[in-house]
């Protein structure tokens, strides 16, 4: 597996404050990589290092196998969390200016821009000033400006904030589309449902240190605890619940159903498998529901942070 971006043992200090402590991440080519962590964990510092807005005190960053240099900024598109546009400038002119700062020629910038404006159906915004646009409209422009120069690496910091659900979906589809065309995406967010939907890989940063990373599926596999949500229909529910309590770790389960069955969450120990449990239960009750509990990204996030 080839990486587009590798950070090795990156540390960064602001005065007395250690913003990043020996952080290493590997971002595979053409993946969507979720950079997660609570506020103030150091995500933005890492992103700024990748964008060469600031520089690490220790460690190094490789882009496509080469040490990160100034020339690479043309291949990175960055949508910061704190974002905005010049309010007094016209939309088209401003987008071309920002694209040219990324190294695009004027004619190329114009061509790309026309494509995106057409795609989003906003051609008539070209000569309007940013201050005349709504927040959601300005965010669309901001997104276009980020991807206009066809960067290899796209970095989105909370990309969906400020969008209504329809436009958030539109942007999500565009991100997936860009990935299909070969782009690698770093995705920094608190919104775990979008992580669940989009990210193949994640890294979790807490208190300036990386505490977890890898493929999301692998992480989930590692975090599942042999626990099952079960629905059981029978006459003497209390008796069965008492029996179960003796053998397993049992808690109440909450899932939707149409009946009034007994709902329990059962955790198995000592190498017991789902089959053993099914065998035990099938003799005692009618099984209406049997699902393994896979931890959500949100669960893993909260659990890992709390343990840290």
């Amino acid at each position: 597996m080839e990486e587009l971006l590798v950070a090795e043992h990156v540390s960064k200090k602001y005065g007395q404050h250690l913003a990043l402590d020996d952080v290493s991440i590997r971002i595979p080519k053409n993946s969507i990589f979720g950079l997660l962590g609570p506020n103030g964990a150091g995500k933005t510092t890492l992103i700024r290092i990748i964008n060469q807005i600031t520089y690490p005190d220790h460690g190094k960053v490789l882009f496509d196998g080469e040490p990160l240099e100034r020339k690479h900024i043309a291949q990175i598109g960055y949508l910061p969390e704190e974002r905005g546009l010049y309010k007094n400038m016209k939309v088209g002119e401003q987008a071309i200016y920002l694209a040219r700062l990324k190294g695009l020629s004027k004619s190329d910038a114009k061509k790309e821009l026309e494509y995106w404006f057409d795609r989003f159906g906003i051609v008539d915004w070209w000569h309007r000033k940013v201050q005349e646009l709504s927040k959601g409209m300005a965010q669309k422009i901001q997104f276009i400006v980020t991807v206009l120069h066809k960067p290899k690496l796209l970095i989105f910091d909370e990309p969906f904030s400020g969008f209504d659900p329809i436009n958030a979906n539109l942007i999500k589809d565009e991100i997936l589309n860009l990935q299909k065309q070969g782009a690698t995406v770093i995705f920094s967010t608190h919104r775990m449902e979008s992580v669940e939907e989009l990210c193949e890989y994640i890294a979790l940063i807490n208190k300036s240190r990386k505490i977890l990373d890898g493929k999301l599926i692998d992480i989930k596999r590692k975090h599942k605890s042999n626990t099952f949500d079960i629905g059981l229909e029978l006459a003497d529910k209390d008796k069965l619940r008492a029996d179960l309590d003796e053998r397993f770790t049992v808690s109440d389960a909450f899932f939707r159903s149409v009946g009034d069955e007994l709902k329990v969450r059962v955790q198995l120990h000592n190498g017991a498998t789902a089959n053993d449990l099914l065998e035990y239960l099938s003799k005692r009750a009618l099984i209406t529901h049997f699902v393994e509990v896979i931890p959500t990204a949100n669960d893993i996030f909260i659990q890992t942070i709390n343990e840290d």
Binding site: I53, K87, L98
Partner: peptide, 16 residues
């Protein structure tokens, strides 16, 4: 100050 308050600054300095 305008660039700071309009929050465009980080977009710009990721390019220059």
């Amino acid at each position: 100050i305008e660039e700071k308050t309009s929050r465009i600054i980080e977009v710009i300095i990721s390019s220059v």
